[in-house]
Design a protein around this nucleic acid. Structure first.
Lengths: 338, 338
DNA sequence: GTGAAAGCGCTAACAC
DNA sequence: GTGTTAGCGCTTTCAC
């Protein structure tokens, strides 16, 4: 560790100055091809590797980005992470994971990490700004932040997102087209933009089809399995239970189907279920889940690409970048039997 | 960004030297309580935050650890990551994600990141050392590396793992106890220690029960869904198909069950299936999957704890730390009908 | 208990 | 094209 060669060592061996070595090694041009080659040669011989800490201090960068999510334990973020990591790796950036668990203190903490130079930029997937930043939006201007999947209003931040309303609408329309009239919805946690968007898509589609939304047809969930189960219990207790359910995410849809089965309902025989996310297990689920697929990998890639552009000094996109979704029709939906 | 206060600014305001400020802020004692307090006060007023890059260069640390996995897209690693992150956060360490995709070049790359000071230590979950390090084990000695879940032989590295053989044995014994005699196994990718361990556990249990392993009863998989399907196709084509299958991980078990169902077999009516991992969806699967649960969160926590100890200068544990597993009996296993 | 000074290893001005 | 010099912001000797 201590005998690691430094630029100075190479400089001495090569009989040039440290500056020249630095220039040669960073391939910044301005060095004779001959010396450049000689220096690279010596560097390889000595097994030289630049000390990133020194470089980071000098260049005022850390070559790392922070990926902040609500819950690292949620598989939903995996492909996004993968996309971010892939683009990052290709451009020399590392990815630091941040996990807020919806704790405002931790959200603030990660912003501090940005300020402190732990990372050069951040991809925010929590949809929330810490209070003191939201209060003084000036504070965020010089921070490189891209919002992915979620929406942060009025902060002038670039967004990479999907059209939740349109996607939900197409999901519900699919149920309508199958002939369903009594269609219920299980929402995500409620004041959140994503949940609201999906619910609004549901409402729009119902209105378009001239269908009522009876009392109790909108059940509130929290994106977790268990809440899908709970919601189904409520729905089946209604005087007129639905023949189809549009669920705001796959995980709750799993729970919903599980509970339906427990209560003796066949899916899709008695009740059709549509999810949202296309988790990678949804195709192996029984029955294979009809769901809205979002290009998570591409969202990660795109978010990172936008972030890199900002870090390179370019202006972020003024308009949100909307990634396409797709309704995957599998076996959890069918025409109503009654 | 440029007007960030530095230690010098605080020093001037407080009428002390930068050294004193540094001492006061790091609470290293050696400062009068009065001045200490005054300095903290001023720091808060100025909204001072230390520049980590400068600190890192000076202290020769980066306060980050590298978590290297084969595939970040695999939900299996999520809870481990969560555990590592939790312990890291509590101790001021960030977690850098590394994704090798089984590419030796990338494996080497992450070791280089360690050497270059990107991170202070590494939790290795690939079970592989890059060639040039494996070759000269001297190179790894001064690197803080902990191996989790996988096993790296002869490198003197600390391990946090589970007893794959014993766990598999108990899983197979469960099938035997139910009365199954024709028990097949779908393995993981084959020369890997983990896969070998689970297969050996299967063989041991079969031998203990005095059961034969007919030709074709050991199908090779790769831990991915699809290979579970493929394996089932092979197994059902045998002259005497099994009545139970022990699958080396849950993901393949999902694929296996899916395929069994497609081919008209009821689970567990016709064929019982046991998985390994207890992915968080296994309980919602239909039928809820009998599987071996490993304490992934604790494994992550433990690995990080061991790593921290090593970084603090302590010797790593000489013996592998073995975390307990548990067989969760759910609804995918039942006595054979025939 | 505090200050002065050095220096972590690198890159960027500025000369030539 | 190359060398000289300075300095990124911090912590840590070493004096006193």
């Amino acid at each position: 560790m201590n005998d690691r060669p430094k630029i100075k060592d190479i400089a001495e061996r090569a009989g040039v100055s440290p500056a020249t070595v630095s220039r040669a090694l960073t391939d910044s041009g301005l060095v004779t091809e001959a010396t450049r080659r000689r220096i690279h040669e010596i560097a390889r011989e000595l097994n030289y590797r630049p000390n990133v800490r020194a470089r980071n201090l000098r260049t005022q960068r850390s070559m790392a980005v922070l990926l902040v999510v609500r819950d690292v334990g949620n598989p939903f973020y995996l492909d996004v992470l993968k996309g971010v990591e892939a683009v990052g790796r290709a451009t020399g950036y590392s990815v630091l994971m941040g996990n807020t668990e919806n704790d405002p203190e931790r959200e603030a903490e990660y912003f501090d990490m940005l300020r402190d130079g732990h990372a050069d930029g951040m991809i925010l997937m929590t949809g929330k700004l810490p209070g003191d930043i939201a209060g003084q939006p000036a504070g965020i201007e010089d921070l490189a932040v891209v919002v992915a999947l979620e929406i942060v209003e009025n902060a002038g931040l670039p967004h990479v997102q999907i059209d939740n309303i349109a996607a939900s609408r197409s999901a519900v329309r699919h149920l309508v087209d199958l002939g369903h009239r009594r269609i219920a919805h299980i929402t995500g946690p409620m004041p959140e933009t994503m949940s609201v968007g999906r619910r609004d898509g549901y409402r729009h589609a119902m209105a378009e089809a001239g269908l009522d939304i009876p009392e109790g047809y909108e059940q509130h969930g929290n994106y977790l399995l268990e809440s899908g189960r709970d919601a189904v219990r409520q729905l089946l207790a209604l005087p007129e239970p639905p023949t189809a359910i549009f669920v705001a995410n796959d995980e709750m849809a799993y729970g919903a189907i599980h509970q339906l089965r427990r209560m003796g309902r066949d899916v899709p025989g008695d009740v059709s279920v549509v999810g949202f996310d296309d988790l990678y297990l949804s195709q192996a689920f029984y029955p294979p889940l009809t769901t809205v697929s979002q290009p998570r990998l591409d969202i990660g890639r795109m978010a990172m690409t936008v972030l890199l552009a900002i870090l390179a000094g370019e202006a972020g996109p003024a308009e949100p970048i909307v990634m396409p979704t797709e309704l995957l029709i599998r076996a959890s939906t069918a025409p109503p039997t009654a």
